[in-house]
Design a protein around this nucleic acid. Structure first.
Lengths: 204, 204
DNA sequence: GGAAACATGTAATGGGTTACATGATTAA
DNA sequence: TTAATCATGTAACCCATTACATGTTTCC
C-alpha cells in the first residue's frame, strides 16, 4: 500500500509487468524479443538488463516462475502483487518528458554555425525525421484495430511529423534571415554567424 | 582528425563547449547556472557532473583555465581544439530520438486499464502537456529575435502542442470506442478492458 | 557433424543522481 | 555573528551498454 513516488528507473520493471499482463506468461528470452519488436520505439532494453531484473522482480514477489521448460527456459507469470504495482504506476505516476535530447541540443547550438552549415545540419535532421516517419507509418499500415501499440504508435507518428514540420520551417526561417542579412537595406546588420551577441564560428 | 563516431555520453561535453563558445569564458559555477536556466529544457546536468567533466576536458586540451578569481573560482576558456570538437559534432553527428520515453510507455500500456481509468490517465497527461506548453510559451513571450535558444524553444513548443492534440484525440477515440462497445448492435463485442486479445485488467 | 537459433547468465565500464563535505564572501 | 549565496569538489549508488561466457536444441 506504500504510495512512495516512482523513480525513473522503475520503468523497465513496469514494461516487463505490462508485457506479462498483456500477453500472458513468458520467458526472459520471449520478453527480450518483445522489447526488440513491439516495444522497440517505446522502451529499449537488452537481455543483459532483463534477466537480472526478472530475478529481482521474482525476489520481490511481483512475478513467479510458473514452469521450467526445455533448455533451462523459465516461464514467468505476473502475480497479484505485480498487477497491483503495475496498476498503481499507471494510475498514480505522471511522467515528465526527459530534459535530455541530443536533437534539442543540436537545435540549440545551430546558431554557432554559419548559415550554409546550419542549413546542411537542418536538412540532415529533416531527412532523418522523414525516414523515421516512413518507418512508423509502415508499422501502422496493416493493423489499425488491435489497441496495444496503437496509442503509442500514434504518438510516435505525430512526433515525427511535427519534427519534419519544425525542420522545414526552421530551414525557411534561416534562409529568410540570411536573405535579409545580405541586403544592407535594414537598420541592423549582422555578421556571418547568425546568432545573438558574442556569436563566434565554431571550429576550423 | 579522427572521425570516430560520437557516443551518447558526448553530449555533456558538447553542451559545455557550446556554452563556452556562445557566451565566452565562464566558471563551473556559471555553467551550472546556465544549465539551470537556458539549457533546462534541452540538456540537464548538476554541478557534481559538471566539475569533473570540466577537469577531464581541460586534461584533453579542449578548454583551459584562463584565470583564477576570488573564492577559488576558475574561469575556463574554450581552445581551438575545443571549437574543432564542437564543430565536428554539429556537422558530423546525427542524433536519433531516444527510444526510452515514460510517456510513450504509459500510452502503450493504456489498454490495460478499464475505460474510466484510461480516460483519467489521458486527462492527467493532457493537463500536464498543457502546463508544459504554457510554461514554454511564457519563455517565448518577450524575446523573439536573439537566436540562441530560439530553434530549440520552438521545437519544444511544437512538441508540447502536438502532445496536447494527441491526448485530446486519444480521449475522443477512447470515448467513441466505449460508446460502440456498449450497444450490442455491432458484430463483435469486447469485455471491459478495451484492448486486443488476452486483455486483463491490471490490478486491485 | 556443424551452423543457426534458442536460452541464460556475469563482468567491466560509463553516465547520472543524491548525498556528503568543505570553505570563502557578502549582506543583514 | 550568522545566514545566504558563492564556489568547488568527492563518494555511493543505480541504470544501461558492451563484451564475455556457456550450454542446448533443431535443422541441414
Amino acid at each position: 500500500m506504500s504510495t512512495r513516488s516512482y523513480s525513473e528507473g522503475m520503468s523497465l520493471r513496469i514494461a516487463l509487468l505490462g508485457l506479462l499482463s498483456a500477453s500472458g506468461p513468458a520467458s526472459g528470452y520471449d520478453l527480450t524479443k518483445k522489447f526488440e519488436t513491439s516495444l522497440a520505439h517505446v522502451w529499449q532494453a537488452g537481455h543483459s538488463q532483463i534477466y537480472p531484473e526478472l530475478a529481482k522482480m521474482a525476489a520481490d514477489g511481483l512475478i513467479t516462475v510458473e514452469a521450467e521448460g526445455s533448455r533451462g527456459r523459465k516461464i514467468y507469470t505476473i502475480t497479484a502483487d505485480g498487477r497491483g504495482e503495475l496498476h498503481r504506476w499507471l494510475t498514480g505516476h505522471t511522467p515528465s518528458s526527459s530534459p535530455r535530447s541530443e536533437i534539442a541540443l543540436q537545435a540549440f547550438l545551430t546558431p554557432l554555425l554559419d548559415t550554409s552549415e546550419a542549413l546542411a545540419l537542418l536538412e540532415r535532421m529533416k531527412a532523418n525525421f522523414e525516414a523515421r516517419l516512413a518507418e512508423l507509418l509502415a508499422l501502422e499500415g496493416p493493423r489499425r484495430k488491435p489497441g496495444y501499440g496503437r496509442y503509442a504508435l500514434d504518438l510516435g507518428i505525430r512526433q515525427a511529423r511535427m519534427a519534419v514540420e519544425w525542420a522545414t520551417d526552421s530551414i525557411a526561417d534561416l534562409k529568410e534571415s540570411a536573405a535579409h542579412a545580405e541586403e544592407p537595406a535594414t537598420g541592423d546588420h549582422e555578421a556571418q554567424p547568425h546568432g545573438g551577441p558574442e556569436a563566434e564560428c565554431a571550429g576550423k
